[in-house]
Design a protein around this nucleic acid. Structure first.
Length: 627
DNA sequence: TCTGCCAACGATAGGGATTA
DNA sequence: TAATCCCTATCGTTGGCAGA
């Protein structure tokens, strides 16, 4: 714990230096606690990995994710872009390089399409993509996208599914060590992906997004590597075999594994027992459905799920530990020696969901969620080691970042992402000053921030975010569209996709009555708006805020964005259509209130802006004299 | 101080993509 | 085909601010 504090202190010092000299005027109260991947270098992970070795080249380049929502049509398309490729041949590497160069060459100066055009809100042509993209990209998407996808994803698909061993054990396969997953590495084995274990539909997937998307996105031929040359890839051969396998499959009914509450709420259930994290945090009773007695299938387990026979904790999280559980050793703090644990006795380990850094009983009661198992103790030990690594590496990386910032000139507008320093995704996000202009006084001169693929060179693990080939395909399509017409994607979605996953200890929550709230003592506002520099403690807060900056792209009927008002105040882009009111608001909600409950409050006003705008203010006041 | 207005937070329902 | 859960929209609530 002392070393941890020391690391924090060291990092804090570095961070302070960084803050003082940050070209973005970014102030932070704490150090970055995130681990910098060892594979990263000043060259950036993509180039570094390309040059590092031919065996398993991981390229992280030109990654983005965005979601474009057209409110008029209701069409929604999620794009995720990544080019982190796992490949094993020169051809694959060349393909990767081709894509990489394409993205590099296609980065153009920022611009904001349709800005200031009031008619933009009524423009229903582009659907999810601006018309400029459509005209510049043309058609013939799907085929090209398929080719790209085959090239960039087939060799990496191996990493999208568990290896045979993990699959047989029903364990999570992390693929962390390149060719081998951690589990196989520890066992001295090599990950295998045999035909028997293969999941059949790997190769067959449908075009992501929508028909509109497919008609407007086009990947330039120059950017498309000749992926057909990759057909000798072992995995591709497997995939082809898979696609040819038409043998009927026996339909199996999945077992209800999530707890009842999570199942009902349709939220992720980590299936921890006796209480999943969701129920634990809500102080609710976690109930799992009783499996059928004659079932021969073993229920799925997470790596924390333990045999019921070893459980010593109560089902109800708030219930204290029974006193009979004699040899309980509370391993509250990661790093605590495990030597005192008697392997033959029950060992109480903190609920894994509490994380490694939440040892304070005022924050999480340690009476909750204990497990009795050696594996849990082992896991705790692992968490301890991970935490210490994070602490040490974050201190180093924070110091490096501070040095980098000291040597950089001051910037006055939204930075188009420098080539340095190379930081991890978490680091990038946590030191969000990397996206923050100098000061709030420069707000009015701020450029509309653009997506720049090099943002995501910093995230070598980006591929892990994709769950399917379909998502990768969408990413490839988006990459091409974006590269051809940068700046056209939703700011909110681009930024939000890169939000940090705040680790425990950074955003602790405390129990406040019935609710769990962020601990004001420790909560850091790690989420920053790149436009106005407002900061938020939660992703949701920033998400909401970012929508305010982008909603004018898809104004509902009757509302429109006023260029004139925006010139005066960029934050007030929602203007009342009623003459002579024309009051402007910074949010759509504000204008809605204005039209609905506010000055123009009326039944008509609550229906649509068109109707509200068409009706006179006198009529509305007559209808609602009280308001 | 009160009230109206606004911005934002947090919880939740549920559509639907994905997976087993 | 059922289960999982990501993701979005929506709603209720809270807190800050400005004007009365």
């Amino acid at each position: 714990m002392a070393s941890q504090a020391q690391s924090r202190s060291t990092a804090s010092t570095a961070s302070t230096s960084s803050n003082l000299s940050s070209p973005f005027g970014h102030r932070r109260s704490g150090p970055c606690q995130y681990q910098q991947p060892a594979s990263q270098s000043r060259k950036g992970p993509a180039r570094a990995l390309i040059e590092r070795g031919p065996k398993f080249v991981a390229v992280s380049q030109a990654t983005t994710s965005a979601k474009t929502v057209n409110r008029n049509t209701g069409m929604q398309a999620t794009h995720s872009l990544s080019a982190e490729y796992g490949s094993s041949s020169d051809q694959e590497r060349e393909a990767v390089e081709a894509m990489l160069n394409f993205h590099r060459s296609s980065q153009s100066p920022p611009h904001r399409s349709s800005q200031g055009d009031p008619s933009h809100a009524k423009d229903d042509v582009p659907k999810a993509v601006p018309a400029s993209v459509e005209t510049s990209l043309g058609a013939d998407v799907s085929a090209e996208a398929d080719r790209v996808l085959d090239g960039i994803a087939l060799s990496s698909l191996k990493r999208l599914r568990p290896c045979d061993s993990c699959r047989a054990m029903r364990k999570r396969c992390d693929f962390e060590s390149g060719e081998n997953c951690t589990r196989c590495t520890e066992r001295g084995e090599t990950c295998a992906y045999t035909d028997e274990m293969r999941k059949k539909p790997c190769l067959s997937f449908s075009m992501g997004g929508t028909a509109e998307m497919s008609s407007v996105y086009h990947i330039p031929a120059a950017a498309v590597p000749d992926v057909r040359a990759l057909s000798d890839s072992p995995y591709m051969q497997q995939a082809i075999l898979a696609s040819l396998d038409e043998s009927p499959r026996i339909a199996k009914t999945r077992r209800h594994a999530a707890c009842t509450a999570c199942h009902t709420k349709k939220i992720k259930c980590d299936m921890l027992k006796p209480s999943c994290t969701g129920c634990y945090e809500r102080s609710k009773v976690c109930v799992y459905p009783i499996p059928p007695q004659n079932s021969d299938a073993e229920p799925r387990k997470t790596h924390f799920a333990l045999p019921k026979s070893t459980l010593i904790s109560p089902i109800i999280p708030s219930q204290p530990i029974p006193s009979e559980t004699s040899t309980i050793v509370k391993l509250e703090v990661p790093g605590q020696s495990l030597a005192s644990i008697n392997p033959s006795s029950s060992v109480a380990v903190r609920h894994p969901s509490l994380g490694p850094d939440s040892g304070d009983e005022s924050i999480h009661s340690v009476d909750n969620g204990y497990y009795s198992t050696d594996s849990a103790a082992s896991r705790l030990n692992q968490l301890s080691q991970e935490q210490s690594q994070i602490d040490s590496s974050s201190a180093i990386s924070s110091a490096a970042l501070a040095i980098e910032n000291l040597s950089k000139p001051q910037r006055t507008s939204f930075p188009a992402v420098s080539s340095s320093p190379v930081v991890s995704d978490h680091h990038l996000s946590n030191t969000s000053g990397a996206h923050r202009p100098a000061s709030a006084s420069q707000k009015s001169t701020n450029q509309f921030p653009l997506f720049n693929p090099s943002y995501f060179e910093r995230d070598p693990n980006f591929i892990s975010r994709f769950k399917s080939k379909k998502q990768i395909k969408q990413a490839a399509i988006t990459a091409a569209a974006l590269a051809s017409n940068p700046g056209t994607l939703s700011l909110a979605d681009i930024v939000l996709d890169k939000l940090p996953r705040v680790k425990p200890g950074i955003q602790k929550r405390i129990k406040c009555g019935k609710l769990w709230i962020l601990d004001p003592e420790t909560a850091e506002k790690v989420y920053f708006c790149p436009i106005c520099r407002k900061d938020y403690t939660t992703a949701n807060g920033l998400k909401y805020h970012l929508s305010l900056h982008t909603d004018f792209h898809n104004m509902p009927p009757g509302y429109y964005w006023s260029k004139e008002s925006a010139t005066e105040d960029l934050t007030k882009v929602f203007q009342c259509t009623v003459e002579p009111c024309r009051k402007a608001y910074s949010t759509l909600a504000g204008l809605k209130y204005h039209m609905g409950k506010g000055k123009h409050g009326s039944a008509e006003g609550k229906q649509s802006g068109d109707e509200a705008g068409a009706s006179s203010s006198e009529d509305e006041e007559d209808l609602n004299p009280d308001e």
